[in-house]
Design a protein around this nucleic acid. Structure first.
Length: 512
RNA sequence: GGCGAGUUCGUAUAUCGGUUAGUACACAAGGUUUUCAUCCUUGUUAGAGCGGUUCGAUUCCGCUACUCGCUACCA
């Protein structure tokens, strides 16, 4: 077979916000495509009108964009590309001919059983513990073009009666499949059923639409979640039935992402319960329901992507921090694991911390500026960059820039009682009063210079360094925390430093 | 119930028949820091069970157990 350009697709259903498991599937597709010089397409599989959610598509596009996953072709790109449209509802008329083609070749048939009839058979099956399956064993006892006369079928079709088209699953056939991650997988067609390919509303089901579109869009590799492994034989059989086996894509089924604790796959509920996001972006649905997002919770997209990449894949080296380009370089399907991975919110925080440390202060400052603006604080870019330089290594989330650096922008509004109790004693007020007088007489507030002078002042007065410094810190920060004391003095300047010390002297005296 | 897939420290993973089973997160104890955080050092903890194959199995095979997925006119 001649070399085909690698083309992969991410094909989500717009049924709600895109789950982080979905983002990972998109990411792996993207990494694989870029690693192999191929294209990454985005196709929307909106064949189920009953579950369609309006904002979902825009959410998907925005999520991928935030993550730095660039779509080469399809939804969100203008022009969309040569194989469009890329929304299955817009391709609706196209599927019918393929379904009929399968009927003509004897691989599919019309079925007229109503949903109610089938539901009844299923409940009956449950009661008798013989589950009902629409397959080679039962199809000849049901209402379809295999059991009805040709005239009757034609009559029903002409009358516009509701029908579906089902795949006629061959009997007792061994299907040997090859999955890029799981290697050989075998099925016997007797275990499979006659899946609906074309629904009574004129829409294809996932199976038909997926195969037809992948064929038409010249997809070379299908990389998707493990929940699809069971339908792989159906899909391969469909390629065979259509006579497309020579251009059938290769398949790779990704392991699932599991709950941090307990059992089952990761769900929105876990996030609510354990306090971490399950979605990349904040979501608010038509029903007013909301969901937390990594972006709004202060995660950097680099960290989110980095974490996702290492969930189910590893480079085989001890490197853990990867840029997108490094991921592309290092990625291969061979190193994707077979077993489900439990999601670890703690490790995710660690990734974010690492990325905040690595992100240059100017980028951080731009994000910090937005937080400051919300608080009606104005500061120069230069100043904010300096602050970020000093505090970024103690931040885990973007918003920590504020919680760990507010004192660069405003005076403390209270003094941590525990620290006051621990430090503001043994005539602290008296000593700080003296120190204040000393500080008032100093003019050079350069960190190094002021530190040196203050230290000798403390020495000549035989004060305790720890006490004085911590009390000053309490005055300026409001708690025993934060960066180097004299760096704070330099940053906020003499005037502000003195004001804060004076205020502390008044306030804390009262509390004492 | 049936079918498919999976199973290494608490978690994510390395190992591609021979290792004191490595690393990271988390946790614990020290150190650094006038504070907090960062950072550094050290430490605890792992091959589901049972049978094979083999000179030797975490690694190969089988069985059992458990977990996950599928079993819709949902994807």
């Amino acid at each position: 077979m001649e070399e085909r350009k690698v083309r992969v697709r991410f094909a989500p259903s717009p049924t709600g916000p895109l789950h982080m498991g979905g983002v990972r599937t998109a990411l792996f597709n993207y990494l694989f495509a870029k690693k192999n010089g191929g294209d990454f397409l985005l196709r929307i599989e909106d064949t189920d009108q009953t579950r369609f959610v309006k904002n979902a598509e825009a959410y998907i596009v925005e999520s991928l964009k935030w993550c730095g996953i660039k779509v080469d072709e399809g939804i969100g790109v203008t022009p969309e590309g040569p194989y469009g449209p890329y929304r299955q509802s817009d391709r609706k008329p196209l599927y019918k001919q393929y379904a009929y083609q399968l009927i003509e070749s004897g691989n599919a048939y019309f079925a007229f059983d109503t949903a109610e009839e089938l539901a009844e058979l299923r409940t009956k099956g449950e009661q008798t513990k013989v589950p009902f399956v629409y397959n080679h064993k039962t199809r000849m006892e049901l209402c379809n073009s295999l059991t009805l006369s040709k005239e009757e079928v034609d009559r029903r079709l002409a009358n516009g009666e509701q029908f579906v088209i089902r795949f006629k699953m061959p009997e007792n056939q061994e299907v040997d499949l090859y999955d890029e991650i799981r290697k050989e997988v075998h099925f016997n067609t007797n275990e499979l059923d006659d899946k609906v390919l074309y629904k009574s509303d004129g829409m294809p089901t996932y199976h038909l639409a997926n195969v037809v579109d992948d064929y038409l869009m010249k997809i070379t590799h299908v990389i998707r979640g493990e929940e699809w492994l069971s339908s792989m034989p159906l899909h391969v059989l469909l390629y065979r039935a259509f006579g497309w086996e020579d251009v059938m894509p290769k398949f790779a089924h990704l392991p699932l992402i599991l709950k941090p604790q307990g059992q089952g796959k990761l769900s929105k509920r876990d996030g609510d319960k354990l306090g971490f996001p399950v979605f990349p972006l904040f979501w608010v649905g038509d029903d007013g329901e909301t969901a937390q997002g990594y972006r709004e919770n202060g995660y950097l997209p680099e960290a989110f992507v980095n974490m996702l990449a290492l969930l189910g894949w590893n480079p085989g080296t001890e490197q853990e921090i990867f840029t997108m380009d490094e991921l592309i370089q290092a990625f291969s399907l061979e190193r994707v694991g077979k077993s489900g991975s439990r999601f670890d919110p703690e490790k995710t925080k660690w990734f974010n911390q690492q990325w905040i440390h690595r992100t240059d202060s100017k980028t951080l400052a731009e994000m910090f500026m937005k937080i400051l603006k919300e608080k009606n604080i104005s500061a120069s870019m230069d100043y904010v960059v300096k602050v970020c330089d000093m505090i970024k290594e103690r931040a885990v989330f973007v918003q920590d820039l504020w919680t760990n650096g507010y004192y660069f922008f405003e005076a403390p509004q209270s003094y941590e009682p525990k620290d006051v109790k621990k430090r503001w004693k043994d005539n602290a007020s008296e000593k700080i009063q003296k120190t204040l007088e000393f500080l008032e007489n100093e003019s050079d507030y350069t960190s190094k210079v002021l530190e040196e002078k203050t230290m000798s002042f403390i020495a000549t007065n035989e004060f305790n360094v720890g006490q004085i410094c911590n009390c000053l810190r309490l005055a300026v920060v409001g708690a025993c925390m934060g960066v180097h004391l004299f760096d704070i003095f330099e940053m906020i300047g003499k005037e502000e430093t003195l004001n804060r010390v004076r205020k502390a002297l008044q306030t804390i005296q009262v509390e004492e």
